[in-house]
């Protein structure tokens, strides 16, 4: 994964260092890791829910557009994914 822009053909997966799940008590999606928990915003949760180690970034964006028609989300999604890679939450399947 290069530091800069993420390609639409990249296939992300959740890093084995984290677990992504819905937390009822927090009413949000979270990432759990040794001795900590990141609470995710609604949109971050929507995006990570689609990360499955099979879908490309392009497919993830397409799926979100279908779910939220009319929302201009390309850049937001790319920015979030880039940040998520930066935090180590995501890895490329071919990494």
């Amino acid at each position: 994964m290069s530091e800069s822009a993420i390609s639409l053909t990249n296939i992300p997966r959740i890093s084995p260092m984290f677990r992504f799940q819905w937390e009822e008590a927090q009413a949000c999606h979270v990432l759990l890791y040794p001795e900590g928990m990141v609470k995710l915003s609604g949109s971050a949760g929507e995006i990570l829910q689609l990360v499955n180690g099979k879908s490309t970034v392009g497919e993830i964006i397409a799926a979100l557009k279908e779910k939220f028609p009319g929302a201009p989300l390309d850049n937001d999604v790319l920015n979030f994914l880039e940040a998520a890679y930066g935090h180590g939450w995501l890895r490329s399947v071919d990494d």
Binding site: E23, E24, Q26, V30, E35, M37
Partner: peptide, 11 residues
């Protein structure tokens, strides 16, 4: 484990 999880324990 069940009781604490119900109250929100995650770790």
């Amino acid at each position: 484990l069940r009781q604490a999880r119900k109250m929100g324990a995650a770790q």
